[in-house]
Simulated assay, not measured.
Amino acid sequence: MAPSFDTTTHTVCVMDASGHLGFSIVQRLLQRGYTVHASLQKHGKEDMFNGISTDSNKLKLFRSDPFDYPSIIEALRGCSGLFYTFEPPHDQPNHDEYMADVEVRAAHNVLEACAQTETIDKVVFTSSATAVVWREDRKTMELDLDERHWSDVNFCRKFKLWHGVSKTMAEKSAWALAMDRGVNMVSINAGLLMTHDLSIKHPYLRGAAEMYEDGVFVTVDLPFLVDAHICVYEEVSSYGRYLCFNHIINTHEDAVQLAQKLTPDAASSSSTSSSSSSPESGDLGKGFIEQKISNKKLNKLMVNFEA
């Protein structure tokens, strides 16, 4: 981070602030002295923000729907930056073949609003590692996967990897609009976020066994992901995409521990029923899987970041 960066002079918007990541980013920004516009979708809960700021002037709540353009503009007014993470609408909670259209429209609206907001200097766009890892040639590549690679949407559609479809299409749409409209944007391609309520139904986990076998099944802890977002915002030299993870599932023990977290009921029963209940605990092998994905670009940027 550049020594001259004064967080107390920055007003930034976090959208959607009601999810695990958004809420944690709001907390950390307030701790660092920012003024924050916390933008919640209509199903968000305002009371979750009670008491998180000792200065009432530092936090302002907004009700913004990513499909309601004026509400986005209102939340961005006066802000120098945006942290954008997509949360599925409450009436469409699951990723399916139609979610890509929903997520693309939301990203387009938000980036267009940023282009129309003269005070916006940088957008941090939360994407996913699933927009990187799903490729036909992933098993034969000589080099590790990194942020230079994109998932193949047709490949994802073929195997019903809807999370990969949505994240890839939405991020590509955001990049296209950002470059066309001159919006300064960086993206964070995050691994599977390890939250306390993570379940086996999470759409990221479709194809988990294949990711494991390919050495690209990565996860990220919430504090590390929050730090990464703030680091790429504050660092003036940040650019492009950043793969973000701080753990890789590449041993049998890792796979079993994750399977037990995802299916606690199965874990307490017999090992046979546990195996049949969780695809992650199936025929994954018992050796060490070579890591084939790299986050060196982000790690280099974060070396001097003061969390």
Rank of each mutant, 00 (worst) to 15 (best):
R181Y: 10
S268Y: 09
F5T: 10
P89R: 06
D47K: 15
G22Q: 08
M194T: 11
E234F: 10
F288S: 06
C114I: 03
I120W: 01
R148W: 10
A115V: 08
A2C: 13
N154F: 09
T195D: 06
K297D: 13
V102G: 08
Y212S: 00
G285A: 05
M99V: 03
Q31S: 14
G207P: 01
H196Q: 09
Q31L: 15
D16R: 09
E213D: 11
M185A: 06
E142F: 11
T263P: 04
V36Y: 01
Y239H: 14
K158A: 05
G33N: 04
L143S: 11
V303T: 10
A106E: 01
I120Q: 01
S269D: 14
E235Q: 14
V132K: 05
D214Q: 08
L192W: 04
N250Q: 07
H202F: 10
T119H: 03
I72L: 08
V153P: 08
H95N: 05
Y242M: 14
T54A: 08
S276F: 13
Q27H: 06
V165W: 04
L177T: 11
T54S: 12
R32V: 09
G282K: 15
T11R: 15
V183L: 03
M1T: 14
S64W: 00
I249C: 05
K45C: 06
Y84R: 02
A115M: 08
E280N: 13
D152Q: 09
G81H: 03
C79K: 00
P88E: 01
K201Y: 09
N109V: 03
V218P: 00
L82M: 03
L59S: 01
S238M: 09
S281I: 11
A209I: 04
P279E: 10
S80G: 04
Q291K: 10
S269R: 14
P264T: 12
A255Y: 08
Q260L: 12
S294V: 11
A131V: 03
S80Y: 00
I120F: 02
T11Q: 12
R206Y: 11
K58G: 02
